[in-house]
Nucleic acid binder design. Sequence first.
RNA 1: GGGCUCUUAGCUCAGUUGGUUAGAGCGCUACGUUGACAUCGUAGAGGUCACUGGUUCGAAUCCAGUAGAGCCCACCA
Length: 882
Amino acid sequence: MAETTSKPSAYNPSEIEDHWYRFWEEGGFFNTDADSGKEPFVIPMPPPNVTGRLHMGHALQDAVQDALIRMRRMQGYEVLWISGIDHAGIATQNVVERKLRDEEGLERKEMGRAAFVDRVWDWKKKYGDIIWQQKRKLGDSVDWSRTRFTMDEGFTRAVQDVFVQLYEDGLIYRGNYLVNWDPENQTVISNEEVENVERDGHLWWIRYPLASGEGHITIATTRPETMLADTAIAVHPADDRYSGLVGRSAVLPLVGREIPIISDAYVKMDFGAGALKVTPGHDVNDFEIGQRHGLETISILNADATISEAGGKYAGLDRFVARKEIVADLAAAGLLVKVEDYRHSVPISSRSKGLIEPLISLQWYVKMKPLADPALDLVREGTVTFYPDRWKNEYFRWLENVRDWPISRQLWWGHRIPVWYHADANGEIDEGRDFLVSVDQPLPGMVQDEDVLDTWFSSWLWPFATLGWPEETPQLKKFYPSTVLVSGYDILFFWIARMIMGGLHFTGEVPYRDIFITGMIKDKQGRWMSKSLGNGIDPLDMIEQYGADAVRFSLVLLCAQGQDIKLDPTKFEMGRNFANKIWNAFNVFGRFMEEGKDYRRKRLFDELELVEKWILTRLSQTIKAVDEAASRYRLNEAVSHIYDLFWSDFCDWYLELIKPVPGEEMDQEKMALAIEVYEAMIKLLHPFMPFITEALWHRLRPRMDGDACIVAAWPEVNASESNADAAELFRVLQAMITGIRSVRSQYNVPPGKRIAVKISVSDEGLAGSVEAQRQYIERLAGVDNLAVGVGLEKPSASAALVVEGHEVFVPLAGMIDLGVERVRLRKEIDQKVGFLNSVEKKLANEGFLGRAPAEVIEKERQKAADARAELEMLRTNLQDLN
RNA sequence: GGGCUCUUAGCUCAGUUGGUUAGAGCGCUACGUUGACAUCGUAGAGGUCACUGGUUCGAAUCCAGUAGAGCCCACCA
């Protein structure tokens, strides 16, 4: 499928990306084969929500994951990128509910559960995999035939089995406790789903009369309406102001209930009036005080956060309306002491953004400590490793303090809880009788729990339930545990920690040994990207504008060791420019290639010319560095090594030296090596820039059907084709060329004008070596009259440079400006003197000589000697000017 | 209140176990387009590595403290 090479075309990402994605997908290159016998490499992709659209976070994490997947595929692993979609309980229910209301005027509750859930399924089938069309644009090499859904048949079975197993293990229980209640969605949520935000509020000081009829006690509260559920007043045991009141009672205003005054060390003496109204039914800390003192727990809120019947005359009012009325009533009764402005943090639902109301509710819980302890040990022992390491501390902190997990949700979209109740005469749950935990209906007439499970109760099974667990499938045997998880830290507790616990408990193995935590994408000012702020950058727009390869490359380059990325769209210019460079560099030799011809080098390494030995040496060094960096998930380093090699070495030096002069053809042997090196670099780049590399790979040689860059063998270090001496010699030549160019620039020598140069080196051997490469200097420094020798004399009226201990004279008759030259030399001398001083200071330090390693000392001595020699040359040259 | 991260060139950021007078991209200055690329090339300017102290022969790098910025967790009603 050779493309035409006669007419170099400009780089246009959109022209190649769809074409090559289709090539991969239709060619089956993404497919995973459980029977291949190759060593597995597995990444469980965090399943996007069914409501999801591609955002920059996906783009970053997919760029990282796909790079790892593609690299390992090229290295001969059987790769599996576990993919699928999460049903995302609350989020999806909300989206569909809103849509039905807006577009069809339908209310969920009026529709009924079965009809509503049907509509969510319809919605899922219609919109559920939009994100995968978007991920194809990114170039994700996913086996799309294996995608799963967290509510598909097998997954549902796994979730239910897990519930039953945990119940039988004694790790699931049901109970009435204070929960985080989200009145908007009318469901319980877990602590992790609650955000605390600072809000302006008030502190109401309220006087509670004593039951004796004389005197009163004053409390301060931010939520006066909860007083309806007060069952005590608490003061600090050491608070002298109130010591006489402890044990007596107060009368709850507006309600008339008599409540005890108790002492508890929880109370802060210096806050408010030092007395605390205790509301066990609607406050976490008060609940605990209530437990300690055996207080009654009263609940005065309905599920929709209106005041319940227990709230007497306020029943039916919304909590905020009730608050106003209660405050007014207190004021009227002369019991409102004062109102202060007060800024404090309040809990809100991360889903609905509604204010959370703590209240008592009957829910299902998972007992966490027995699951957490083994999960802690495995990370402590190093069986599981975090990259970067510091995230393990967050993990420890959370798991060491983990609280039991409320898993029931009062939603309709999700996995039904596999618990069955006897029904009363009305078909309602009869709480008076025992329930049965069972996947299937255990007895006719029993009714299933109305609630569904927290979304994360299915997600935590992701790495194995996707492979057929609990069946012992070949897939499961081959691909579990996974190799590495790539994720953001935002779901460390929600998902990663629970996945480790679940994996261990249910399969007996850790779900993966490596966890690579990426930074998060922020906007230019470091804020989270969000719809409400409107500061999001759409990856699809960026792909359109810069190309997918450019977007991926830039993201990986910016993604350093878990640091957040403050993203500005102009960052993608770096990737785009690089892609353009790659494309155009091909044309340097590509335009000379004969169609259908396979150029292979005949020369051995020793027969290569210097710059060729050098570029092969640099290639080997780069391959080594890339492999090393990738093994530690330092992909930004891997990528910058390749970038430097390609741009600064291959293009700026190697290509400049081997490309034919205008009008001439390219030497076949040189072409063969150029193709060889370029091909290796293309392969190194493929994991990061898959489209452009695939496109170019096919242009490099005639390819067999079924061959592709995506499955080409990963480059390996070839020690026999690497030569440090050659590399060093070339480096010296580079320094000489740069020096001559610098002189030219300083004296404004026109670019086209060729000049004479005399190079005086330190020994005959080097003179020969430099002489042999004279065409490099002539070509890249614009020199037409080059003399090389030992101890050559400085021509008159010439600029003199000292390069790596050698002297380079640039005669500039008529152009030389003694003033400029003096300034230049003095500057060089000053620099050199400063350098020499610092080195000599070290060498004069007995501590250094006594304690530093011998090779470090030797290096310093060499540096000093070199610097002295160079300084001597510079000074002589300066004197000659006078 | 506890913990974590960051502070390096005008801007955005790299810098792997401490060892050449610190690097990149962008921006800036000068010069340069009849064939790879102006999404480019060549040369250059630009940094007391936040501050203070300590460890060390040697610190951008390790430790302590200070000052800013941000994040996470827990939350005084």
